[in-house]
């Protein structure tokens, strides 16, 4: 088991967003979390990376075993070294070029020599199809290109797992494809991924496991076939009916 989260709770004020979620991820898994907005998907991802502090919960991450509420700074730093994060709004460093965005974590966070980091960074940018844009600043890039830099920044760290928080939700529809293509490619290379998305095609074609969340709990989980073709729970069926076109037929 690479990542195991148990009984994670999180409230914002009176509003309980996560009500005891468990999650297990094996090496090489591509897990997609589906669910209506407000169901806690993003909060779950953010709690795993300590961008939000969970109110309760436990995580085992390789050799690190922590309480999500009381984790020390050192433990948090250690876990963040193993996890990379791709944000909905890209969150590129606006004062850095594409290449500097990718190498920042390597040079400053991991103390890798600059020349070596540049090599790694260029390779990561090549992989996402941005060989021409090493020295472009974020403001010069389209949304799709920015998100691909965001993915390159995550890949370059060579993390154990990459968390994707609705990576295509902020994009113009015609730019979604280029980002999904890159994500499919890195999934094919064996990268462990945990993806929150509304892209059903990605869940169907790429994921080996789909989790359906609603109102702060995991309603059901299984293979894409389990979830899309023969969902057990009424809530899942209702959700799928809402998000999928009526004549949508699954061929798996």
């Amino acid at each position: 088991m690479m990542l195991e989260i148990t009984n994670i709770h999180k409230s914002f004020g009176e509003n309980e967003i996560l009500k005891g979620v468990d999650l297990k991820i094996e090496k090489g898994d591509v897990v997609v979390i589906l669910g209506p907005s407000g169901s806690g998907k993003t909060t779950l991802l953010r709690c795993i990376n300590f961008l939000e502090k969970a109110d309760q919960g436990h995580a085992i991450f390789g050799d690190i075993d922590v309480n999500l509420k009381t984790a020390s700074k050192k433990a948090i730093h250690g876990i963040r070294q193993k996890i990379a994060f791709v944000f909905q709004n890209y969150n590129l460093f606006n004062n850095k070029t594409a290449l500097e965005n990718v190498t920042e974590g390597l040079v400053i966070g991991r103390k890798i020599a600059k020349a070596e980091a540049n090599e790694i960074g260029k390779k990561a940018l090549d992989k996402v199809g941005l060989s021409e844009k090493y020295n472009a600043y974020p403001i010069e890039l389209s949304g799709g290109q920015q998100q691909r830099v965001g993915i390159a920044r995550a890949v370059a760290l060579n993390p154990d797992i990459i968390l994707f928080d609705e990576p295509t939700s902020a994009l113009d529809p015609e730019l979604v494809g280029e980002v999904l293509t890159v994500m499919k490619q890195i999934a094919k290379e064996g990268t462990t991924m945990l993806v929150v998305t509304h892209e059903m095609s990605f869940a169907k074609d790429v994921a080996n496991r789909v989790i359906f969340m609603d109102a702060g709990v995991v309603v059901e989980e299984g293979s894409p076939k389990d979830i899309f073709v023969k969902p057990k729970e009424e809530r899942t069926r209702k959700f799928l009916k809402r998000v999928l076109p009526e004549d949508y037929i699954f061929y798996i």
Binding site: N49, F50, L51, H77, R80, Q81, I83, A84, F85, F87, N89, N91, L92, F93, N94, E104, G105, I108, G109, R110, R153, L157
Partner: peptide, 14 residues
């Protein structure tokens, strides 16, 4: 300066 950039910095290990 967006808070997201700070989060991104944490997420790459800064």
């Amino acid at each position: 300066v967006s808070k997201g950039q700070l989060e991104a910095a944490y997420s790459v290990g800064l």
